[in-house]
């Protein structure tokens, strides 16, 4: 849900009237860096799903599959974040606006489009964990 909020509200706000809107976004993030949030909760999420995978490992092969799939999907999100989003964050928030208006416009549109993919990966990871828990409770009762 955080990711969907980022697309619908944050990224649309940054890109709504470039160059003025990106300057407003830079001013807004001047004192608190939003990466602080993701740098804490991203690793916690990855660690929790890894622990779930390890602790449910012996229960059944299908549980391994579903928790493993969640782990893989979240790992893909981390990879996408470093390989795709961070380079565009650099363009959006550090490049000179006057000299790179077109690149900033392009980066903003690409960021929004790809963030729908990132949200879909996260949703698939959550659903896969739901399925894992469902199988676990069916096995137990």
């Amino acid at each position: 849900m955080v990711s969907i909020y980022n697309t619908l509200i944050d990224a649309n706000s940054w890109g709504s009237d470039i160059p003025a809107s990106i300057q407003t976004a830079r001013d807004y993030y001047k004192y608190v860096d939003p990466r602080n949030f993701f740098a804490i909760f991203g690793p916690i999420n990855q660690l929790l799903i890894l622990l779930a995978l390890i602790f449910f490992w012996k229960d059944s092969v299908s549980l391994r599959f579903y928790f493993g799939l969640s782990f893989l999907l979240y790992a893909i999100i981390v990879f996408l974040t470093f390989a795709y989003f961070i380079p565009r964050d650099q363009i959006l928030f550090t490049w000179s606006i006057q000299d790179h208006t077109e690149q900033i416009r392009a980066a903003s549109a690409q960021w929004i489009a790809m963030n729908w993919i990132r949200s879909a990966l996260g949703l698939a990871g959550v659903l896969s964990s739901f399925k894992g828990l469902d199988i676990y409770y069916k096995l137990k009762h």
Partner: peptide, 30 residues
């Protein structure tokens, strides 16, 4: 008897721990 009770307690704690990890991952990811 006591050994069975302790065994059940350990199983319950282990079960809670497992679902805490799984549900925790769902809550944080969602």
């Amino acid at each position: 008897m006591e050994a069975i009770a302790i065994n059940q307690l350990i199983r319950s704690v282990f079960h809670l721990l497992k679902i805490t990890f799984a549900i925790g991952a769902i809550v944080v990811a969602a």
